[in-house]
């Protein structure tokens, strides 16, 4: 720590009446998180039609996703280029920021009959890990309920093509589902998640 920095630290800690601006040494969680709003919406609630909502995501999932982008392990159009701009510490700060926001589930055009079919499949193949109809953020499995459907399409297609790695046990379930219902089953699931409020 150089002299100037130490002095700043002292000034802040001692809360001297401040004549000019005094600066903390790092960006805060809100400072970092607010830069993402142009693409992900204010506080991470995306207005769609495709960019995913990240408000209310679990902190574990968020960190996994960002590290995956940063290390180039996860397929992306642009997040790989963005995630490389942050330290691991900053990613943790942002995880705190976004995981404590409330997710808003938008009105989306979905086929009600398909959504109903999807619900049954969800219960059978996915609910175990994506609890509460894909709403739960308590695990590290990401949010499915109310997520933008074009994004879910892209993501499922990346999973199926191997561009994004599926957790082993999820892969097994998705393969079972595919064998039984083909692409139509995946489509139904996406309509189900899109219909969730």
């Amino acid at each position: 720590m150089n002299y100037k920095r130490r002095l700043q630290g002292i000034m802040i800690a001692g809360s001297v009446a401040l004549a000019g601006p005094v600066f903390a040494e790092t960006p805060s969680a809100a400072m970092l998180g607010n830069t993402c709003a142009g693409c992900h919406g204010t506080h991470g609630n995306s207005q769609g039609p495709a960019t995913p909502t990240i408000a209310g995501v679990s902190s574990e999932y968020f960190i996994d996703a960002m590290m995956g982008y940063k290390n180039g392990d996860r397929a992306a159009t642009i997040m790989d280029r963005i995630a490389k701009g942050y330290t691991d510490e900053e990613i943790k700060l942002m995880a705190e920021f976004f995981s404590t926001q409330k997710m808003e589930r938008p009105e989306q055009k979905v086929d009600a009959a398909l959504a109903k079919k999807g619900m049954k499949m969800h219960e059978k193949y996915c609910e175990k890990c994506h609890a509460d109809g894909g709403r739960s953020t308590e695990d590290d499995a990401g949010m499915l309920a109310g997520q933008w459907t074009p994004y879910l399409h892209f993501t499922m297609s990346d999973f199926m093509s191997g561009k994004r790695e599926m957790p082993k046990k999820m892969k097994k379930k998705v393969e079972e589902l595919q064998a039984k219902g083909g692409d139509a089953a995946i489509e139904a699931l996406i309509h189900y998640y899109g219909s969730q409020k």
Binding site: P21, V22, T26, M31, T35, G38
Partner: peptide, 27 residues
């Protein structure tokens, strides 16, 4: 992005409090 950094600066200055380091993005 700059407007948000500026907003934090203005709020910090008006409240005579420390400002966090800025962070900016462009796309």
């Amino acid at each position: 992005s700059q407007a948000k950094v500026c907003a934090v600066a203005v709020v910090s200055l008006l409240n005579e409090m420390a400002m966090p380091q800025p962070s900016y993005v462009n796309t």
